[in-house]
Nucleic acid binder design. Structure first.
Length: 421
RNA sequence: GGAGGGCUCGCAUAGUGGCCUAGUGCGGCGGUCUUGAAAACCGCUAAGAGGGGUGACUCUCUUCGUGGGUUCGAAUCCCACGCCCUCCGCCA
């Protein structure tokens, strides 16, 4: 939910944000009208309640002969309060609905437009050259190495499921462990999170809006399978007032992630690029909104640090407004070069959600004056299963073996090469 | 699956229709005293919404798990729901 004070003070900014997202700017005016209506309703109801309170208090103390009069007046007021309260809650509900319809206000500098309107901020590293052989894709490499079994994944669970076996399982554990170690060294608290969350948490993080179809729901228990540990990490401090005087509160969550991939039929059906279940180490930060932009920069730098460790060529893009999702004010993706696809694919994504998520989840902190204020939340990827695709493809040798990036070797018991089995 | 207990201002508790403007203890903050500290004593001690003032502030309303209901008036009475905990059974 966006800040209503900002909406009142700078309505045009919010309208412009909607325009950049290619969304309907009239939702902004609907919200403004709903906010005004609620304010008026609250004022009227408060005044009536105040009068009713003083009147009914006098009833108890009144002399018997003046009671009937007071009671009559009190009854009138009770009816008036009831009507005013009904209008108040109707206005409240309308405001909430209008509030939920407006996505976060984008940060200045975010490119306008949709999915294809991103801006490339930089390209890092050299794409591999395969002298005298055609590079194999990760599915073929995964088979040769006995690392990835998509056929049996499909047999047991259906399309977009897979087994990581042998070197594949070890490689994923090594990668995720390396991510956790980096996070801990940087000052993050490592967390293993619940995979199932309640509706209010899933809704509070913004995943039940336009992307609700992406989320697995367990009907019998009214719980949701998380698509990322961002969800339980955001829920961790909901309804709390945090002490952020010592700087941002940072968590690194390790979890499996579940996605229905509805509407992506036929896209990336081969291999483990787009799957229903994968594992991820995710950074999450609670901070003072004044510090959020800098924190976002730090998150991006930590992601790049990971990419450097696995020696992948990548580029950083500034995601366009229309492709941000409802919670993010700005989003940077790091995309690794995938040789057999001849293009870059997303490996990390870091979002600055400013106060949007925290306002819904009621996450606050005390400012310098000791007053509660809404906190800012940010998240970013440190490693996922998808990284295996880029690592295998970029570091492959003609015989199908794969060189293990130096930084990763200690996490694989010193292994320098993955050999076909 | 079955049975029971609970949900009050950070924590613990009191509170069975108007004296609750929610008390008390702990913790926390400030002060007195002290060379300093402790102890003792004194004071302060939640959140949200709306309004007024440049501002330190101030006024009003709301909140005792949530939502309804009864009543002039509800933490307190009635109904529904949610959540937490314990025990039994079953399973890992």
């Amino acid at each position: 939910m966006i800040d209503l004070r900002l909406l009142r003070e700078d309505t045009d900014l919010v309208r412009a944000s909607q325009a950049s997202r290619r969304e309907d700017p009239s939702t902004v005016d609907t919200l403004l009208a709903a906010a005004d209506r609620r304010r008026d309703a609250v004022g009227r109801a408060d005044t009536l309640r105040a009068e009713q309170n003083t009147t009914s208090k006098r009833v108890g103390k009144a002399a018997p002969e003046e009671r009937p009069q007071l009671m009559a007046r009190a009854k009138q007021l009770a009816a008036a309060v009831k009507a005013a309260t009904a209008e108040e809650s109707a206005a409240e509900a309308a405001l909430r609905e209008a509030h939920l319809a407006v996505p976060n206000v984008i940060e200045d500098g975010v490119p306008a437009g949709g999915e294809d309107d991103y801006v490339v901020l930089k390209e890092v590293g050299n794409r591999p050259e395969f002298d005298g052989f055609a590079p194999k894709d990760h599915v073929e490499l995964g088979q040769l190495l006995g690392a990835i079994d998509t056929e049996r994944g499909a047999k047991v669970s259906g399309a977009r499921f897979y087994y990581l076996t042998g070197q594949g399982a070890l490689l994923q554990l090594a990668l995720l462990n390396m991510a956790v170690v980096q996070a801990v060294e940087t000052g993050f608290t490592p967390v293993i999170t619940p995979s199932l969350v309640r509706p209010e948490v899933m809704g509070g993080t913004g995943f039940l809006g336009a992307h609700a179809a992406e989320v697995y729901r367990l009907e019998a228990d009214d719980l949701y399978l998380v698509g990322t540990s961002e969800v339980p990490l955001a829920g961790l401090h909901m309804d709390e007032i945090l002490d952020l005087s010592g700087g941002p509160r940072r968590y690194a969550g390790w979890s499996s992630c579940y996605r229905r991939e509805a509407g992506s039929y036929g896209k990336d059906t081969r291999g483990i690029i787009r799957v229903h279940q994968f594992d991820k180490v995710e950074m999450f930060s609670y901070c003072d909104p004044a510090d959020a932009r800098d924190e976002h920069g730090r998150m991006l730098a930590w992601e790049e640090q990971m990419l450097a460790k696995v020696e992948l060529p990548y580029r950083v893009i500034d995601v366009a407004a229309g492709d941000l999702g409802s919670s993010a004010a700005r989003k940077y993706d790091c995309e690794a070069w995938i040789p057999t696809q001849g293009r870059y694919r997303e490996l990390t994504s870091t979002s600055n959600c400013t106060t949007f998520q925290a306002r819904r989840l009621n996450i606050r902190f005390r400012d310098a004056g000791g007053r509660p204020q809404t906190a800012a939340t940010l998240n970013g990827t440190l490693a996922t299963t998808r990284w295996l695709v880029a690592i295998l493809e970029n570091h492959q040798q003609p015989d199908g073996s794969v060189i293990v990036p130096t930084a990763l070797r200690p996490y694989l018991g010193g292994r320098e090469v993955l050999e076909p089995v």
